[in-house]
Amino acid sequence: MKFTLKIWRQKNQNDPGRFVTYEVNNISADASFLEMLDVLNNELVQKGEDPVAFDHDCREGICGSCGMMINGRAHGEGRSMATCDVRMRMYKDGEDLVVEPWRAKPFPVVKDLVVDRRAFDRIMQAGGFISVKTGAAPEANAVPVPKANADEAMDAAACIGCGACVASCPNSSAMLFVAAKVSQFALLPQGQPERRERVERMIEQMDKEGFGACSNNYACEAECPKGISVTHIARLNREFLRAEFTEKA
């Protein structure tokens, strides 16, 4: 297959950046989107040009490193897929593809398609953790967890923090990310001690980072590579209300 790629090139944070058009040929239909970019980069290196920088690590949809806007969709075509899951057969032969980095004020572009997602780390540092006391590990079955809660927490914990929710949201809102993180702890006994402070601090940090407010149009759920449901956002709102309207213990 062959494609015409219109890729965002930006040397560094201070560079205004611009689109550069490249042609790629002889791409296997079974190649992933990242492998297609590898082919392009090989050619660029051979020509002595700077290869296109993009984040990637596991290439099997579980690390959350990769992520780019392909033809106006976060992680490209398809549902519940990271960019590395996207296969070139999902596009038409000869198709023009516009490839851009996530665009959001809290995610500044570092280079080309790489953005700085440390705003997510700072939100996690604000409350996305549990306290664990030292000592012998307790017997795993000693703490009962309802099956439904365990399942729901597991669904939330599937979040890989890729930032597609922010990238696809018209308000660059990080609500789905924060909702997943707050949910996974709020549903389990281990998350109870910091339950109240967690949601307050994480929301405060989320707002401080400059992410927008949620307008409930659910673009995030549609683009989430892990298919995280917006019911977790409802839970986040519930957790926030619970924290705000109950007395501190």
């Binding site: 219109k6 689109f19 806007m69 106006g72 969709r73 516009v98 851009e100 018209p170 683009e223």
Partner: peptide, 9 residues
Amino acid sequence: ELYRLKDNT
């Protein structure tokens, strides 16, 4: 440059 929000919302 290209944002297909209407596909999802």
